[in-house]
Design a protein around this nucleic acid. Structure first.
Length: 297
DNA sequence: CATGTTTCCTGACAGC
DNA sequence: TGCTGTCAGGAAACAT
């Protein structure tokens, strides 16, 4: 039995930014807005998707120069500097703008004449004449600012380990003694920052581990496999996303990255691509979790 | 403390 | 056609 052509692989899975997507977006933004200066800021009122008070966000952003844009966990971090009168950068003040896209958040670069998308919550007018817009229909996204007082302070730090830098022995320690299902542990951002539902399922499939297994009870060999599976899956997805990064944040808001070819996620009832068994779906910690009952133990 | 459950929010989609 | 109901999910709040 084969999946119907044009069916499962093409169903809507776009727009759920996990680590690879956020990495792709941050790289694209860095290329396009680094060096630009934020002239002024408009913030929507309504129920605010703002973690910091709106006034604080506006005052940190206005007149700031965007030094770099990068990813930390699932967060997009804009490193900000403040040029003084001579145009030199002031050494005494630095800051960061932190953007979490949630599920449906987007950062778009647009010309001012382009019509404002529905659910636009923030608009940054840039010295280059462009606008950087934050749009988020579902409002799971969050905006925050961080003030960096002294040079010794690092600024925003993710709550957990960066999955791509995490060494295998950190994996052993992170999951030691945890009675929670390994799927929940992978999603716990205080342990690993950046793994979301899709890549958790895909990693577990590649590692041959069922999502409900208690984290603490995984064999060392299984953790070893899982460690490389997580990194492989993420790196592969970044590679695919990177090839179409420029489309993602364009003025029209087209989404353009090639999704990772999912092997289990969203494939309930379809045949496992390795053994042909029917892919199962269960709910773990409120999230749908997909696995192959034959390949995963 | 660790773990499980509920809530937020809207668009997409299925079914009648 | 148009309405209603269900589902999706990150992370915080809340409950156990």
């Amino acid at each position: 039995m084969r999946a119907p052509a044009g069916g499962p692989c093409c169903r809507k899975l776009e727009g759920m930014p996990e680590l690879p997507e956020v990495e792709t977006i941050a790289r694209g933004l860095n290329r396009r807005v680094a060096g630009d200066v934020i002239e002024y800021v408009w913030l929507g009122e309504k129920p605010e998707p703002f973690k910091s008070p709106a006034k604080e966000i506006a005052s940190m952003l206005e007149r700031a120069r965007i030094a770099t844009v990068r990813r930390v966990g699932k967060h997009i971090v804009f490193d900000l500097e403040y040029p003084n009168r001579n145009g030199r950068k002031s050494s005494r003040k630095r800051g960061q703008w932190i953007v979490h896209l949630g599920m449906t958040g987007r950062l778009l670069i647009a010309s001012p004449e382009v019509e404002m998308a529905k659910h636009t919550h923030a608009v940054l007018k840039l010295a280059s004449g462009r606008e950087l817009r934050f749009v988020d229909p579902r409002r799971f996204g969050r905006l925050a600012v961080v003030r960096i007082e002294s040079r010794s302070v690092a600024g925003f730090v993710a709550p957990g380990d960066e999955p791509l830098d995490s060494k295998i022995d950190r994996f052993f320690t992170l999951f030691r003694g945890r009675k929670t299902p390994i799927k929940s542990a992978l999603l716990n951002q205080k342990l690993l920052s950046g793994v979301g539902n899709i890549y958790a399922d895909e990693s577990l499939f590649r590692a041959g581990v069922r999502p409900r297994r208690r984290a603490a009870l995984l064999k060392r060999a299984e953790l070893w496999k899982l460690h490389s599976a997580v990194q492989e899956v993420l790196l592969e997805a970044i590679k695919l996303g990177g090839s179409s990064v420029s489309d993602y944040v364009d003025a029209e808001g087209r989404e353009g990255f090639f999704q990772l070819q999912h092997r289990v996620y969203g494939r309930e009832g379809e045949p496992c691509l390795v053994c042909g068994a029917s892919i199962k779906r269960v709910i773990i910690a409120g999230r749908s979790s997909h696995y192959c009952p034959h390949c995963q133990k």
